[in-house]
Design a protein around this nucleic acid. Structure first.
Lengths: 152, 152
DNA sequence: TATTTTCCCTACTGGAAAAATAGGGAATGA
DNA sequence: TCATTCCCTATTTTTCCAGTAGGGAAAATA
């Protein structure tokens, strides 16, 4: 299960905007510099976020990007969906469209359970929480277990 | 977050072997037919599983593949790791190797939490359970919620 | 021993998607 | 009018995924 560079970049850019405040415009170039993201690539991503209704933009001298809604109403899942489509997919198709035969039949509910769990986390955590380094208690609980930081 | 065809195929092949029983050999061709997987592609995957110590093979007339260990000691996570490497990665690198700056710093514990959650599910569910359509209670609980089956 | 069966190994290919680049046009503010 | 910045389209480059091809090695059978 791989999270794309695009999704990672999009979330980081949104976090920069969240940190700047809802009514401060930040230039793409500045975000790119702060997060080490290729400038032109980031412009494309910010375009996706704008078309998705998550950010607003302003051209010209004092232009830039800002969040279109308060940071505590935008979940990480929303950001990822806007730039990458479905949150979880198997062979490129989302779980409900899959069909399995024989002993593999129960694989479908298993993928559904995985997706539900991912949604639960990324859907409840907001840009405001991450930007302020104040993750919800249940998420923090998962991340605090030293076991979670070890590789298999 | 995408699960590759290779991982999906590997799990389904392993489930066929689990259903056949630990000491029954099944030919690659038969598994391919039963699950609709390209034969030669599947052979490569079964090779990975063998090198990973999950299946044993036998050449010749009555040959085929079988599980190297009891089906209730092999988790879905193990199967995926053997063919695909790390269970969860961001831009191709596993979470502990990431580093974030500024307001994105708390992204790291977030990815860790997501990974911990995925591990929790795929690490506890075994081939035996899926093959017998007897998922653990907590997983079934997640999958039974009608909400989990709807697309955003 | 000869033959069939099946796994085993290496290489390779086509194509799509991911990641990034390039260049100029259209607003905006000074 | 001019510098700035977003905006749009196209192109490139790279990488990896999914699948194919062909033959060699081992085992069972006859």
């Amino acid at each position: 299960m791989r999270i794309s560079a695009k999704a990672d970049y999009a979330v980081r850019a949104a976090l920069e905007l969240a940190a700047a405040g809802e009514d401060t415009s930040v230039k793409a170039e500045v975000i790119a510099g702060a997060q080490g993201i290729p400038h032109k690539f980031l412009e494309g991503i910010l375009g996706d976020l704008r078309r998705g209704g998550l950010v607003a933009s302003q051209r010209g001298g004092k232009g830039g990007y800002r969040l279109a809604r308060p940071a505590d109403t935008i979940s990480i899942a929303e950001v990822i969906r806007v730039v990458d489509g479905p949150l979880v997919s198997v062979r490129g198709v989302r779980p409900p469209e899959l069909s399995y035969r024989g002993p593999a039949e129960s694989l479908l509910p298993l993928w559904i359970a995985v997706r539900a769990n991912v949604r639960k986390i990324l859907g409840e955590v907001t840009l405001a929480e991450v930007a302020a380094a104040k993750l919800p208690g249940d998420v923090l609980g998962l991340a605090e277990d030293p076991e979670a930081w070890t590789n298999p």
